[in-house]
Amino acid sequence: MNIFRLAGDMTHLLSILVLLLKIYATKSCSGVSRKTQELYAIVFLARYLDLFTDFISVYNTFMKIVFIASSLAIVWCIRVHPMVKRSYDKDLDTFRHYLLVAASFLLALFLHEKFTFLEIFWAFSIYLEAVAILPQLVLLQRSGNVDNLTGQYVFFLGAYRGLYILNWIYRYLTEPRFTRWIACVSGVVQTALYADFFYYYFISWKNNSKLKLPA
């Protein structure tokens, strides 16, 4: 494991912690897209089906369990916790996320490494992760103002994707047989979706002002 991969995983973990902290501290999920969180829960459940068949390292297994558990916990908070549930604004969170699920699954049926149950669900999770942030980005754009913790959550998620690209470049240069088109191409698409957000994030950071996205 190289430093970029480790840093990527850590920022991913950090983003989840920031989100949990926001929900726990404010007992509110305002500005958070429940649909994006549900998509991430599906992503992790579909990708880590190999928890039961393949063992890579204690680190991998541990992180997989953390990602599954934390994503389910976040969805549970937004759907079930009485106080958090009340702060959820479903009128802002209108993205038709089931279309993303359907399109990703269809793509996985055609584009995969092997036609096996695990491989199709793995490819599906890669495609779905690439677009899972869309409901969140649309929600932020619609609401205009972004509170600090939600902004940092999206920032760390984007940083995680950027670091994974550096990780792939590093691996491509150092590992003779490193080719994984599905993950890399989807990863680049996924990172590109953050470009707009990052642009406004850095402007607000430079001007030391509150993050605002144009309508």
Partner: peptide, 10 residues
């Protein structure tokens, strides 16, 4: 081995 290597990322 190849399959394990392939899915070594999270």
């Amino acid at each position: 081995l190849e399959k394990i290597l392939y899915h070594d990322e999270l």
